[in-house]
Nucleic acid binder design. Structure first.
Lengths: 156, 156
DNA sequence: CTGCATGCAAACCCTTTGCATTGGG
DNA sequence: CCCAATGCAAAGGGTTTGCATGCAG
């Protein structure tokens, strides 16, 4: 259960204490490239550190999110997902959400059009509305392979 | 409080009863182009139809969403927003979310790059993962004009 | 008339918070 | 040592559900 030391350093650098729960949560996130819900993170962490409570998971995730070490995602199913920023930053990083079973897959791509599009939209946004864009996300909705077989589509 | 009759027709066509609460909810949505939360919809509807309950609002919104008359959005603030599909479909339609004050603005644009980008990404998604894309949404995160003035940025 | 739709209130789920205790620096 | 961080349990906020009643078709 080692895990990247530079992440821990960024915590202490930001003035936060390097506690056991925080290290384990960081490690769990580092070992799970998928988006984990708070409950899933709790479950994983609990195996190494049984005494942990959900409140600490939430507080730590909030801390990590505010510090920028973790990204928080909302896919519309009522629970948030979390992912290491360093993992998400490995490339443009979007998501495909199956409107039937709720499955979410990461979608790292490398298409030139995106840079131009985002730049153009960002320019328009700042000119028309005075916004300063820091990031963007693209969500695709549709049916995953498994759900295309079945007939009745349960739309969200 | 008239409101578009074709919308009501789509309800009856789908086999649902044309009740008073449903008509009023549809009218409220038709008169408010912004994204409304369930609570805001309840509040508006309540003025015309005081007897209505939140449960009916939620059940109706769910019905309308499943029928495709209404789009449901999640911007990450813990409550869902709803908007008439016919309104949202007036053009490519994305959102800018201020990470400080939570303000959301609609962002209807008309940039050619988007079609190409989405097509390219959709192709990749279907080829690599077997997904069938029905729709997509782009979220921009940043600071709105008002919040750029203030110093401390409260990240989500 | 018949059963879908409503209203009310309780239940639910995820997340946040209060408070005494613990442990990192 | 001291205060930030934890754990527990209770509270909170949005959404869903059970059940008796009401109304559209």
């Amino acid at each position: 259960m080692p895990g990247p030391p530079w992440l821990r350093q960024r915590l202490t650098n930001a003035g936060f204490r390097l506690t056991w729960p925080r290290q384990v949560i960081l490690d769990v996130l580092g070992q799970n490239p998928q988006h984990l819900s708070a409950e899933e993170i709790f479950f994983h962490v609990h195996q190494f550190y049984p005494g942990i409570g959900m409140a600490t998971v939430y507080r730590t995730l909030d801390l990590l999110t505010r510090t920028g070490l973790v990204f928080k995602f909302d896919f519309g199913d009522g629970r948030s997902r979390y992912e290491l920023a360093s993992e998400a930053a490995k490339g443009p990083h979007h998501h495909m959400i199956c409107t039937r079973c709720g499955r979410i897959i990461d979608f790292g791509h490398s298409i030139d059009e995106e840079g131009e599009l985002i730049a153009a939209l960002g320019k328009e946004l700042s000119e028309k509305h005075g916004f300063k864009i820091n990031s963007h996300r693209i969500h695709f909705y549709g049916l995953c392979q498994d759900c295309q077989s079945s007939s009745t589509e349960g739309k969200r």
